[in-house]
């Protein structure tokens, strides 16, 4: 049983990921923005973090930088639906900063579950 933190500002997407991963047998905690996410991560240990990129307070790129610091073994998945730029642009940055996997929104339930299990495998 792995502990997963989902950082996502969109209520529905957050609820989806929470529901999906819980059903898959993981313990899931959620945060609505990067700032809350980093705070939650520091409070308790997680095996994997899924983070959105464009969020208020603290965006996913910053969050990834904070999370990576001191935890080189942490598994990270970045997800994005883009904004002013194509999602790939944000996801590419996330990858350079240490995201193990990136997924472009919208993705299928199978894709995210597969990515999670692959990394935790």
């Amino acid at each position: 049983m792995s502990r997963i933190l989902v950082i996502e500002d969109d209520d529905e997407v957050r609820a989806l990921l929470e529901s999906l991963l819980t059903r898959d047998g993981h313990v899931v905690a959620t945060a609505a923005n990067g700032k809350q996410g980093v705070a939650a991560f520091l409070a308790e240990p997680f095996d994997l973090v899924i983070t959105d990129i464009i969020m208020p307070e603290k965006d996913g790129i910053e969050a990834i930088m904070d999370l990576r610091r001191g935890r080189p073994d942490l598994k990270l998945i970045a997800i994005s639906g883009g904004g002013r730029a194509e999602p790939e642009n944000y996801l590419h940055s996330a990858q350079l900063l240490g995201a193990n996997r990136t997924l472009r929104k919208p993705f299928t339930n199978e894709a995210i579950v597969a990515a999670v299990n692959d990394l935790l495998g």
């Binding site: 969109d10 997407v13 609820a15 989806l16 639906g81 883009g82 904004g83 002013r84 919208p106």
Partner: peptide, 23 residues
């Protein structure tokens, strides 16, 4: 630019539709 601002929201919506209908 307008599309970019909307894309972000719209992809989230699609994500929810795809994900929950699949569930």
């Amino acid at each position: 630019v307008l599309a970019g601002g909307i894309a972000h929201d719209f992809n989230n919506i699609l994500q929810a539709v795809m994900g929950f209908s699949s569930l």
